[in-house]
Design a protein around this nucleic acid. Structure first.
Lengths: 257, 257
DNA sequence: AGAATAGTGTCTATCAGACACTATGCA
DNA sequence: TGCATAGTGTCTGATAGACACTATTCT
């Protein structure tokens, strides 16, 4: 079956001697293709709560329902111009929906959702990304150039809100990925401001994992992060209602002397 | 931009009162769409070596080069018939390429590769899966109904073999996912026969991680797996050139009494 | 008996939770 | 001085590596 035009390769090509000759003669066939979108699960942490940005749909289907931001991957004409990379599409949608420019947020693909009939209109395959917005940037998020409303939702209050399409599944998968990765990756540093205290970093872990962390064990963790060169102390102290706290910064950029 | 037909939603829909009315009137638009394929990284472990199944391409582009098995996702007409799920497509390709029926192998999506120009012909977005073949089933793998050669390659010998398309990247990502997940998931039990010894399971970990494991610590791990109800002892002993070894089996199906 | 493989006991190092304790600011 | 928050010291329990030791089969 693979060698047939319908499911194997794009066309019968064995009679071309060189790859150049083949490509020059190649014409894209017109078999049915799915639409491909990127969907974004945009996270932030505010007051020990993990929050996600949703938009309210203005049109059918699922008119009025809340949904993940997203949009189509632009593929050009598919031959001379193959369009934008998936990451480019995700960054473009992130900026369109939130106003946050590329580079201000961590963005990572985590799964692809392509079940038949997940969109009632036509076959749509959606590559899902999660974005991490530092808590101090959360305020800057505007509704985008979209007429629809955009707002931050706590995960806890989302239990009773039906989301459009299979977006509840996508959101659940994103949370699972974030929870699994935060202990073995520097993801947490993308959810705190560039300068942060031990308590702020701990609150990020608590919000993501949904369980309290021992402040004392967490200080040990901070000391190990310093010993390993992952973070370092920054100048100054953060003053609050008690003893001023040490301020840290992520050190990954300075590890190369 | 999202509200325009080209990049926002599939069509302007705000003038429909109900979702049913909208769907009845909906016609798929004809914007450029990418081709979508599934690619398979099929792993097995033989004699402490992690191996992957590759096929040799019979046509351009990359004629003669070794590549991951894969093929197009069938999407029907995209409206009344939206075609097969991504997992179905992966299972279908696995059976076509190896003769291994659905259910005999573990299959999991791990990433999607959609960079522009990764296929010189046209825009192709590929959802990558890895499959785990039990070592005792490895022999049953036939070349499939494809004329091209299929053979198992050790990861170590693949360093000098250039793969087609971006398949070297896909393979590297698959190995990274497998390595990261094997310690925190039951994946290893899909790489050994249904009945296995401690040494066989240990060899799977060694092959996947690429480092030797202490046999003594590994026995402790077996005892904990039994205590946690993950595995259980099977009847009989495996006889070899030394003391016969205990035989174990995965217990996940029997945890519910 | 000796080789070969399976499996245990025990010491040690590492790390997390628990909790008592000290440190340093503010009102 | 009392309160609030930051941060340390230390005990305990769980787990991995190292290694000496025992167990069971084959030749």
């Amino acid at each position: 079956m693979r060698e047939s035009d319908a499911s194997g390769k794009l066309s019968s090509t064995d009679h071309f001697d060189t790859e150049e000759a083949f490509l020059a003669a190649y014409k894209a066939q017109d078999y049915p293709k799915p639409s491909v979108t990127v969907d974004l699960v945009i996270f932030t942490v505010e007051t020990t709560d993990l929050k996600v940005l949703l938009i309210q749909r203005g049109g059918h289907p699922f008119k009025g329902a809340w949904a993940l931001p997203g949009g189509f991957v632009l593929v050009g004409d598919g031959v001379k111009d193959q369009g934008e990379d998936l990451e480019e599409a995700a960054h473009r949608e992130l900026e369109e929906e939130t106003g946050l420019p590329k580079g201000s947020c961590y963005l990572q693909q985590f799964a692809t959702f392509g079940e038949a009939y997940r969109d009632p209109r036509t076959r749509v395959i959606s590559v899902a990304f999660f974005a991490l917005v530092r808590s101090n940037l959360m305020e800057l998020v505007v509704a985008g150039d979209d007429a629809a409303a955009a707002s931050w939702w706590s995960l806890s209050e989302l239990g009773s809100v039906p989301l459009a399409f299979d977006h509840a599944d996508i959101l659940a998968a994103a949370v699972a990925h974030l929870r699994a990765q935060i202990d073995v990756s520097p993801l947490a540093f993308s959810l705190v401001p560039a300068m942060f205290t031990a308590a702020e970093l701990r609150e990020v872990f608590e919000a993501v994992k949904g369980v309290p962390y021992e402040a004392t064990s967490f200080h040990r963790r901070m000391r190990r992060l310093i010993a390993d060169g992952i973070i370092k102390e920054a100048r100054g102290k953060r003053r609050g209602s008690g003893r001023p706290s040490t301020v840290y910064q992520f050190a990954a950029r300075e590890t190369k002397p």
